[in-house]
């Protein structure tokens, strides 16, 4: 999709959202409450252990920061955009999208920007930074670069998961709450994959690739992984993106419109 169109769409969204400034406060309070809950959850676990999947407390908090950052991207762009796909496939509202002279996948995915939810991105990165201070770990330039690349890859993987799951709407037309599937899957990304039993770990790395969303960027930042590993993350993201693009094309062929 052309960047100019995207910029115009988002400018409109931001202008619209600026009318509802109380939502900024609500969004901030929600995020702070969520982070508090997550930290208390960790505190409960760490009352009874010193390591979780061989990660110590502050390392898991770094991961939590990454999780929150990705949550911000999801809530600001993906859920209000592609998250609405299932309902539109059912009602035939997708007709209006397909009739537009733009790439349908791009438009469906990035048409909305709930700007206030970007506070989650800021607070998530701040949390990760604070945890690094508590770890007494100053990331090297290579580690920061690896983190940047791995985090970008994570955003792409999260996006690919959304597209893959929401594409199911073309086969299961009557299921309007498909986005719940993503929430169920993403729940597993709150903790390092090494904490899970072996079989589940395999699933999270190779089949439903949520290990690449939080565990890998956090590992890159804390130096648990060699910086070069970020290139593998980038390759995984590229593969995931290509596969979902293919899936989207196949799925769209099944769409018969409002009259069908």
């Amino acid at each position: 999709m052309k960047l100019r169109i995207l910029a115009a769409l988002w400018r409109l969204n931001v202008a619209e959202e600026l009318q509802y400034r109380a939502n900024l406060v609500a969004s901030l309070l929600g995020t702070i409450f969520w982070i508090g809950t997550a930290l208390l959850t960790l505190a409960v676990f760490f009352r009874h252990t010193t390591r979780l999947g061989d990660w110590d407390y502050w390392e898991v908090v770094v991961l939590l920061g990454v999780f929150n950052t990705l949550t911000g991207v999801i809530e600001a762009v993906l859920r209000p955009g592609i998250g609405r796909l299932a309902g539109e496939v059912k009602s035939g509202g997708l007709d209006l999208v397909l009739a537009k002279p733009v790439d349908a996948q791009g438009f469906v995915s990035f048409r909305r920007l709930d700007v206030w939810r970007l506070t989650d991105v800021v607070l998530g990165l701040a949390l990760a930074g604070y945890a690094l201070v508590r770890l007494h770990h100053v990331p090297t330039v290579a580690q920061l670069a690896a983190f940047g690349l791995a985090l970008t890859a994570a955003v792409v993987v999260v996006y690919a998961l959304w597209v893959a799951l929401m594409s199911l709407a073309f086969w299961f037309v009557s299921v309007e709450n498909l986005s719940v599937l993503f929430d169920a899957v993403y729940e597993g990304a709150r903790y390092p994959v090494s904490a899970y039993p072996g079989a589940l770990r395999f699933v999270f790395v190779y089949l439903i690739p949520i290990a690449w969303t939080t565990t890998i960027p956090a590992s890159a930042l804390t130096g648990r992984l060699e910086p070069g590993f970020a290139l593998v993350a980038a390759a995984v993201a590229a593969l995931a993106f290509a596969l979902t693009r293919l899936l989207w094309r196949t799925a769209l062929k099944r769409y018969s419109g409002a009259s069908g």
């Binding site: 676990f45 979780l52 599937l181």
Partner: peptide, 18 residues
């Protein structure tokens, strides 16, 4: 239903490890 059981399933996974 699936969504409802993931939270306890993840909690079980963590306690299982601990």
């Amino acid at each position: 239903l699936l969504w409802g059981v993931t939270e306890p399933a993840v909690a079980l996974g963590i306690w299982w490890a601990i």
